[in-house]
Design a protein around this nucleic acid. Structure first.
Lengths: 231, 231
DNA sequence: AATATAACGTGTATTTTTTACACTATCATA
DNA sequence: TATGATAGTGTAAAAAATACACGTTATATT
């Protein structure tokens, strides 16, 4: 349906680092490889870039083929070109990453025989990985740790409606530190891009928390001033 | 001496965005092309990546061939892969950038017949550029504007010994805004990574300013704590 | 109905950082 | 010795970050 595979398409591949958040943990999506090299190893979803497509198209296609995921907004992380990262010689790879809102749909169906299954793994406890993929994941983690301080990526990991405690847990999982509840709330609410809803959390066996929504429009209004610095 | 050129090496190139600071202005190094496509146009130093080299090696080699510059620490910016960025089809390019201390040695000698000359141009006033190089420079500028707020890249643009006013000028040129002299000095000196020297500026026809040095060791000590966040 | 449980939701005082703002000092030169 | 040009300096006010603890509420259990 997408690519026909020949012996060696190119020496240029694209890899996807897809993060999700579940059970208070940050997870990353790995595939079990069904082809050499690294047959039977866990790896990032990734494959050769075709000569006729942009890199952006390629990662989109590859992610779909490997995991069934579509319409995921991915951002480029870095391009890796070490001579020894691939056993078949110098294969350059461009890595992309994305943060994903998990909706319980953990049924990920590869559309490619090159991978056997796609499974979420906690980033704190990863199996041994093919190629330099462990390194690529480390670099992605660094990146999102940086980004979470300056951009609203935390919301991409949460359902549309979330509680402030859930939001705090995302920050804590990514930054790897405990945050003060009152200070966290004060700061978040001061930004004025959260909309308090008239709904509460459902199905918990304790006092239900208020739900909030991330308001993109307000965020854009506030941070379009990104370019204006004070002296 | 470096690469022998064949008709079409690959569809993968590397481009270098080299910034310098002179006369209170941020400048970028451009080459005048001597080959098609874009013969006679101004462009970034850039060429095909060989199959046997890492990307890091390639940019180093290419920069030397085009400008005679060596041992420049370059950092990867982004990889561009639009279908229309190159008239010969989809040529992916990985862009690197660097900040350079100009020592009056503006004699840049290409070692390649593919370019005619290499010349510094003020970023505020660039000629029309080949390929998507104007876009690549824009992206590099964004990047260094971000970086100058969190890393000591300003010092890479200055001579080893500099005055606080020169340092402020670098910040102002990159950020594109005027800064308050007293607040700027207070902040910089508070970081404690500047070493005040017993020397003064020479050859100026007005009160000579004190010279300072950037102290890498102190910087490393202070900012190795980068990983420690307050709650 | 009473109680236990588990997370919710809130305020204040202190410290630190950022910002605004203007004049005197010094050196070289005319 | 006067002029021109940049160097060098401090304080007060505002804003942001930090530290810190307990009563509230919904549900489940007895």
């Amino acid at each position: 349906m997408y690519s026909k595979l020949t012996h060696l398409q190119s020496t240029f591949t694209a890899d996807c680092v897809i993060f999700g958040f579940e059970e208070g943990e940050l997870k990353v999506l790995l595939v079990e490889r069904n082809e050499y090299p690294y047959k039977d190893w866990w790896a990032l979803p990734g494959f050769f870039v075709e000569h006729s497509e942009t890199i952006d198209n390629a990662v989109e296609r590859i992610l779909y083929e490997h995991t069934g995921l579509r319409n995921i907004f991915m951002e480029q992380l870095y391009t890796f070109g070490d001579l020894k990262r691939h056993p078949q010689g110098r294969v350059i790879t461009v890595a992309y990453y994305a943060l994903l809102r998990l909706k319980g749909q953990s049924t990920l169906k590869p559309h490619s025989t090159y991978v056997r299954q796609a499974v979420w793994h906690p980033v704190e406890n990863l199996p041994e990985l093919a190629f330099d993929h462990a390194h690529i994941i480390d670099r992605s983690l660094e990146k999102i740790r940086q980004n979470i301080k300056s951009t609203p990526i935390a919301f991409e990991l949460l359902p549309e409606k979330f509680t402030l405690t859930q939001l705090q847990k995302v920050y804590e999982a990514i930054l790897g530190i405990a945050l003060d509840k009152r200070n966290f709330r004060k700061k978040m609410l001061n930004y004025n891009f959260l909309k308090e809803l008239d709904e509460k959390q459902q199905g918990v066996s304790y006092r239900a928390a208020k739900l909030y929504k991330f308001d993109k429009r307000k965020y854009a209004k506030i941070f379009q001033n990104d370019l204006s610095f004070k002296k």
